[in-house]
C-alpha cells in the first residue's frame, strides 16, 4: 500500500535521545558529521563505531529499523567499496589480470563503508526520534537569525509544518480513493504507459478536489483564529529550553571529536 512509503519516519518514544532539544539534536548531528570526516585510522573508526552502536541502543529504536533505512543505499555502498578496493595504490596483496588489491585499498573500503553507514544511521536517528513538526520548529528557531536578512523564516517553517502535517493525510486519502475506484473495477496495473496514466484520472481528480477543500478549510480556520503570519507579538506555544541533558550531550560529542582528533597522534 501507498502508506508504506516512509518519509523521514518518526517513531514515538521516550528515550534520552527522544527527549533532547531538537535544536541541539540538529547541531549535534552536524558536529557528528564533521567528526566522521575528521576520522582517520582504525582506532578512530573503532571508537566511532562503538559510539554509534551505543547511541542506537540508547535510542531504543529496533536495530532492524536502522537497517531497513540502509537498504536503498546498498548499491552505492557496494560500488564505493569496490572502487576503493581496486583503485588505491599501496602494498599489493592479491593480483590478477589488471586488478590489484592492496592493503590500503581494503582499509579504505572498510572506512568508506563505515563512514556511509554511520552517516545514514545518525541522520535516521534524528528523524526517527524527532517528530517532523518538532524538527521544523527546531530548524525555524536555529534559522531565525536569518530574519535580519529579510528571509521569511517563519513563513517557510509554517509551510513546511503544514506540508508535513498533511503528507500522511493525503497518502491515506489516496489509498482510500484508489480502493474506492478499484471497487468500481478501475484497473491501475495493466495496459501501456498512456493507458496507465489515463487510469489515474479517477484518482487524481478526487484527490485534488479534496486537497483544495482541505486547504480552504485550513485557511479559514487559521484566519478565524487570527493568524496573520509573523506578527511582532507572535509567541510560541512550545518554548525550547536547553537543559542539563542537552549540554551533557554536547559535551559528549565534543569530547568524541577531541578523542578522534587525538587518535592521530597515537603511536600505532
Amino acid at each position: 500500500m501507498i502508506k508504506d512509503i516512509t518519509l523521514g519516519q518518526y517513531f514515538p518514544g521516550n528515550s534520552l535521545i527522544h527527549r533532547l532539544d531538537p535544536r541541539m539534536k540538529i547541531i549535534l548531528l552536524l558536529l557528528y558529521m564533521v567528526v566522521l570526516f575528521m576520522a582517520s585510522g582504525w582506532v578512530a573508526y573503532l571508537l566511532l563505531t562503538a559510539v554509534t552502536v551505543f547511541l542506537m541502543l540508547l535510542s531504543r529504536i529496533p536495530v532492524k529499523l536502522y537497517l531497513r533505512g540502509l537498504r536503498p543505499l546498498l548499491i552505492i555502498i557496494c560500488f564505493t567499496a569496490l572502487l576503493n578496493i581496486f583503485y588505491t595504490s599501496g602494498e599489493v596483496l592479491v593480483q590478477f589480470w589488471v586488478f590489484k588489491i592492496t592493503k590500503e585499498g581494503l582499509f579504505n573500503a572498510a572506512y568508506m563503508i563505515l563512514r556511509i553507514l554511520m552517516l545514514v544511521i545518525a541522520t535516521s536517528m534524528l528523524t526517527y526520534t524527532t517528530s517532523p513538526i518538532v524538527l521544523t520548529g527546531g530548524l525555524e528557531s536555529l534559522l531565525s537569525p536569518l530574519r535580519v536578512l529579510r528571509i521569511p523564516v517563519h513563513e517557510f517553517s509554517m509551510m513546511m509544518t503544514m506540508a508535513l502535517r498533511f503528507i500522511p493525510t493525503l497518502l491515506e486519502e489516496t489509498d482510500k480513493i484508489i480502493s474506492a475506484q478499484k471497487a468500481r473495477g478501475a484497473d491501475f496495473e495493466s495496459g501501456n504507459l498512456i493507458r496507465r496514466v489515463k487510469a489515474l484520472t479517477p484518482v487524481l481528480i478526487p484527490l485534488f478536489v479534496s486537497a483544495f477543500r482541505r486547504a480552504e478549510e485550513l485557511a479559514t480556520a487559521m484566519e478565524c483564529r487570527g493568524y496573520t503570519g509573523e506578527g511582532k507579538n507572535r509567541s510560541r506555544f512550545v518554548q525550547y529550553r536547553l537543559c542539563l541533558r542537552d549540554y551533557a550531550s554536547l559535551l559528549f560529542v565534543v569530547g568524541l571529536g577531541a578523542a578522534v582528533f587525538f587518535t592521530d597522534f597515537l603511536p600505532f
Binding site: A183, R184, T201
Partner: peptide
Amino acid sequence: KSLRFRVGMVFQYPEHQLF
C-alpha cells in the same frame, strides 16, 4: 476484478470519489 463487480462496496463518505 470480476469479484469486485459481484461484491459491490460503498465506502465511508463515498461522495469523495466522484470525478
